[in-house]
Design a protein around this nucleic acid. Structure first.
Length: 751
DNA sequence: AACGAGAGACAA
DNA sequence: TGTCTCTCGTTC
């Protein structure tokens, strides 16, 4: 029986079967191969070999050519890829498209010629000369290939750059004093062989540019396209930082484990000896960060180790070079975002997930992966240890890592003041916050105010009849942006001018309603503190903060984008204008994430310990009480214990496995019927009625003109979830199905 | 994802 | 009847 290739394309498909390229060896799992696809060729990944019956071979098409002689992704990474796809209930190709940072979208040069002895002059193909395949009829190519009459080769197109190269030696025409400059430039060019540009050559040989131009005009030198030099690998740009001293007992264990508590850099310092031991033993380590903003500070502390970096800012050539060089290098620490998950590290011994509960790890596109879950599957496939790091030993971490495998540092001490906004005037700034802001102003220090959203207010409406401006495409209120005089939908981007009159009752008194955004807070601060510089920092507006970063006085009003700024050197106050948005988020993780948010504020300036003023309608909330205790460790542990107990009682993860299944369609009935049909399908697959919650309209019932219905699948084990979700169709009765495994916005599931 | 086939919607 | 748009099924 002939052996065929299972080829995975970066498309929403499972692997397809191709015969190996004609007259080529079989090639290893993990290598890339060019395959015929829709009249052209594209790059796929060999994820398996399979024996096919001889007769079946006639129906299959041949792959065109190999792009790699050795695996591009390790067999272990291929294995992890399949596991991750099954976990996420997504086509394997979607996971490849989402996680392979390079290698599958390169421009290709595809050439053909007649196979030896085929004699295809009639088809216009020579047996000696390669012909660009694009110039040959597609059906003809298919026919010739299937008959074994075609010889093909595919190579990644090399990037070239235009340079100046010498063409002729100086001769008598360049003699004489008036040609001295041209002669000097030409001699220099011969000695360096090529120059980046005419201007560069002029500069380097210390002659005017006109002299070089003359050389090119006279044919002594010319422009040429040459292969571009290998790009430099991405490097950390900030200075190496001496790691803080950390007790030896805080070093996480050799096997699976976690480091919790302290500040980010304390936890990193605790990790260092462990990483060094891995490297000494010949193993590599993958260190994952949730966001690009943490890369620099992490690299600064890991700077003493052999370190490579891979994140979204690397260009495709840098990524490719890194993928090519990693397997041949020694043990290394690869620091990166989710893009680094499948990197071919030699002897992967450990996967470290920093800030392992960060919601930024939930990818919004493609398979909607939760990266730490994917990292755990990768570690498993590689036989590597998994080490988690986060400030708070939250319910998920406590359930995954036993107490004996956890190492703890003390929690940061917050100077916290809770401002009860019930009945307090001066919305959106509590008098306490104003008082402190005035002190900050008087002492010429710095403050940060965190608002829950950008814009002026969450809505614009009529206080007489209760009407609020809504989006025509979505079931959402329009956000009011007073500064640019618009109402905007933050979901679909719809924009309109605010109406002059209430369209319901004709009232003339339309007002900003509900939550205050950055514009509102900033204008209020400016009104109360006339001479204090006010900066805004959110997606709409990023003021130049260089004066503040240099230590100047002022207040920054922003969204959580502010948390990713470099440290403000003179900060004395952090204000949270409405903590309730954190407490009231529609997810069963809302409270622990609110707690985590407070812990994150300690990162602002650990040595200065700025005062943190939290405005809230719930001043007695257990989350705040836990953090206010001194020392907080015991009370925080109790609070987490209560949250874990609540998850057990109401059958939430980690005690169950959850998936959100959403159906969207342009008409409401299509979406709702499809949701009902999906529930039936799950029952048919053996789910019980109490494992299916819903279907019901999604919390936002219509977004961008699409109606959404959803149901939750809640089962007792992950493998049961995988079985029930395996191979669901992407479309159901005219609606599109979106599967979100381990969703982060579960809403009011308990009721 | 990207293509082509087929079904409706609309104008002439 | 032609042309445009949208939906649906297929890709080894």
């Amino acid at each position: 029986m002939p052996t065929a290739l299972e080829v995975l394309l970066p498309l929403p498909l499972e692997p397809l079967t191709y015969l190996p390229p004609l007259a080529r060896p079989l090639g290893p799992i993990g290598a890339r191969v060019a395959v015929p696809w829709q009249g052209g060729v594209r790059i796929g990944l060999v994820v398996g070999h399979r024996e096919v019956p001889a007769g079946r071979g006639l129906e299959l098409r041949e792959a065109v050519d190999w792009l790699d002689a050795r695996p591009f992704l390790s067999a272990m990474a291929v294995d992890a890829l399949k596991r991750i796809a099954r976990y996420a209930a997504a086509p394997t190709g979607v996971v490849l498209a989402g996680l392979a940072p390079t290698g599958f979208h390169q421009a290709l040069r595809w050439e053909v010629r007649a196979a030896q002895g085929a004699g295809l002059l009639a088809a216009g193909l020579s047996a000696d000369e390669w012909t660009d395949a694009a110039a040959v009829n597609v059906e003809l190519l298919e026919l010739l290939r299937s008959q074994g009459l075609l010889d093909e080769r595919v190579e990644a197109e090399l990037r070239t750059v235009r340079v100046v190269v010498p063409r002729a030696l100086a001769d008598e025409a360049l003699e004489g004093a008036r040609r001295a400059n041209q002669r000097a430039a030409l001699e220099h060019l011969w000695s360096v062989e090529q120059a980046d540009s005419a201007a560069a050559l002029a500069r380097d040989s210390d002659v005017p540019e006109s002299a070089v131009r003359a050389l090119i005009e006279k044919g002594y030198a010319e422009y040429a396209e040459v292969p571009a030099p290998a790009p430099a690998l991405p490097r950390a740009t900030s200075e190496a930082e001496l790691p803080p001293e950390v007790a030896a007992e805080a070093v996480p264990p050799e096997g699976d484990g976690a480091i919790v508590g302290g500040l980010r850099r304390d936890r990193l310092a605790a990790l260092l000896p462990r990483l060094q031991a891995d490297l000494d033993a010949g193993g590599s380590v993958l260190v994952l960060v949730p966001e690009h903003a943490y890369l620099e500070e992490t690299a600064a502390i890991l700077a003493g180790l052999p370190l490579q970096i891979l994140a979204g800012d690397a260009d495709d050539e840098q990524r490719m070079r890194l993928f090519e060089e990693l397997p041949d290098g020694g043990p290394v620490v690869l620091l990166g975002t989710y893009l680094a998950l499948l990197a071919p590290l030699p002897g992967l011994a450990r996967v470290v997930v920093l800030e392992s509960a960060s919601s930024s790890y939930k990818l919004q596109a493609g398979a909607r992966l939760f990266v730490p879950a994917a990292a755990a599957l990768l570690a498993d496939a590689a036989g590597a240890a998994l080490t988690l790091s986060e400030a708070l030993a939250g319910p998920d971490l406590v359930a995954r890592v036993s107490a004996s495998d956890r190492r703890s540092l003390p929690l940061p001490r917050l100077r916290l003041h809770v401002a009860d906004v019930n009945g307090a005037g001066n919305w959106p700034l509590h008098p306490d916050l104003i008082t402190v802001l005035r002190q900050v102003e008087a002492r010429e220090r710095q403050a940060v105010l965190l608002a829950p959203r950008r814009g002026y207010s969450a809505a614009l409406g009529c206080p007489d009849c209760g009407w609020m401006a809504g989006c025509p495409n979505c079931d959402l209120t329009l956000r009011y942006h007073r500064q640019d005089g618009t109402l905007r939908c933050h979901q679909c981007g719809y924009e309109q001018a605010p109406p002059a009159l209430c369209p319901e009752c004709g009232g003339t008194d339309l007002q900003p309603l509900r939550g205050a955004g950055t514009q509102w807070v900033a204008s209020q601060v400016a009104k109360m503190l006339a001479s204090f510089p006010v900066y805004r920092f959110d997606r709409d507006r990023r003021d130049d903060l260089s004066a503040l970063l240099a230590g100047g006085p002022g207040v920054v009003v922003g969204t959580t984008a502010v948390l990713r700024l470099p440290r403000l050197p003179n900060i004395a106050l952090v204000g949270v204008t409405l903590f309730d948005t954190h407490l009231g988020r529609a997810d069963f993780r809302a409270e622990e994430e609110a707690l985590r948010f407070l812990m994150q504020l300690a990162e602002f300036a650990p040595e200065r310990r700025p005062l943190i003023v939290v405005q809230t309608y719930q001043p007695d909330h257990p989350v705040l009480e836990a953090v206010l205790a001194d020392p907080p460790e015991a009370s925080v542990e109790v609070a987490i214990g209560r949250l874990l107990e609540r998850r057990r009682r109401f059958a939430y993860p980690p005690f169950t496995a959850l998936a959100k299944l959403q159906l969207t369609a342009r008409t409401q009935s299509v979406a709702s019927n499809a949701a009902a049909a999906l529930a039936d399908e799950l029952l048919r697959r053996g789910a019980s009625t109490d494992e299916i919650l819903g279907p019901a309209p999604a919390p936002v019932a219509r977004v961008k003109g699409q109606y959404a219905f959803q149901l939750f699948l809640r089962v007792n084990a992950e493998d049961r979830r995988e079985t029930l979700l395996d191979g669901l169709p992407a479309r159901l009765g005219g609606a599109r199905l979106h599967v979100d495994v381990d969703p982060r916005d579960v809403g009011a599931l308990i009721e």
